[in-house]
């Protein structure tokens, strides 16, 4: 208690020991302990062991697909997500609030439900799929299907990270730019957009990280053909069902490392932007 008291600033508010103690205990048991099990298993396998697993062409292609399609989907989600955030914040049009509420849908809708819905829509006999099949485009059971599912998953991250910042844009900044003779386009590109870049990157990283790990919404639409449309999380499930714990853990640790790298990136971006922009 004495040690902790020195770690925190004195306060008259009660309950620090109780709440913090409980939270740390639960965090340790529910989150950290199980993650340590993976770390332990991964270190037992060793770097060499992990590399051996990844060298397997099927694993390598699954990782490539997961990372590649996630990257593409995160880019598209960030791009359109930014436009959506801008429109929802800055313009007024009928149905704006409804649309704004719908952005959160992928947070609340179970991934499996999204998965079967997307699969039925984009299947060759589905509404969108049938229409696209007529012009020779196949979405379901191809990497394009994975892409569609990951865009769906990524949208709220992309929109919700930039939206509050768009709302906070100081109108005077835009007016100042206009009085200095800048066109609207120049104002947007040089005065409005740059401060939003950290938030856009954060949203992108979140969407990307989420996309790498996404399972439920992807597996129904992907078709899961090895080497073509099989994602890394699915391969973990397959390895587990084959009792190949080494393989499963190797893939899992790579994915976990990628997630942490994203998390670190996000923190760095935020620290940098806080330092740079401060509060003017």
């Amino acid at each position: 208690m004495a040690a902790r008291a020195s770690l925190r600033q004195p306060s008259v508010i009660p309950g620090f020991g109780m709440t913090f103690g409980y939270a740390v205990l639960v965090l340790g048991i529910v989150v950290l302990l199980p993650l340590c099990a993976l770390a332990l298993r991964a270190s037992a396998i060793g770097i060499g062991g992990i590399i051996d697993v990844v060298r397997d062409p099927r694993v390598a292609s699954a990782l490539r697909i997961s990372f590649g399609v996630s990257l593409l989907a995160a880019i598209v989600a960030s791009l359109f997500g930014f436009v959506a955030a801008w429109v929802l914040t800055r313009y007024n049009f009928p149905g704006r609030r409804l649309l704004d509420a719908i952005v959160d849908l992928p947070f609340a809708l179970p991934t499996a439900v999204a998965g079967i819905a997307l699969a039925s829509l984009y299947a060759p006999n589905g509404i969108v799929g049938g229409w696209l099949a007529a012009i020779g485009i196949h979405i379901a059971y191809t990497p394009a299907g994975i892409f569609v599912a990951l865009v769906f998953i990524g949208v709220p991250f992309a929109v919700r990270t930039v939206q509050p910042l768009i709302g906070e844009i100081d109108r005077e900044i835009e007016e100042a730019s206009a009085t200095l003779g800048a066109t609207r386009w120049y104002t947007l590109v040089h005065a409005v957009l740059p401060p939003l870049v950290p938030a856009i990157l954060t949203g992108f990283s979140l969407a990307f990280a989420r996309g790498i790990g996404e399972y439920g919404s992807v597996i129904f639409i992907a078709g899961n053909l090895p080497y073509v449309s099989e994602i890394a999380p699915l391969l973990i499930v397959i390895k587990l069902s084959e009792f190949d714990y080494v393989g499963a853990c190797a893939i899992a640790s790579i994915m976990l490392a990628a997630s942490f790298a994203c998390l670190l990136l996000i923190n760095l971006i935020q620290a940098w932007s806080h330092r740079r922009f401060g509060h003017v």
Binding site: G15, A37, L38, G213, Y215, I236, A252
Partner: peptide
Amino acid sequence: KFEFTGKALFVTLIDLPFSVSPVVAGLI
């Protein structure tokens, strides 16, 4: 309600499950 050392780490750790694939969450 409190200021304490390691708060940022604590918050990051709380967020951790969001960056873990659900499949990995089952695996662990």
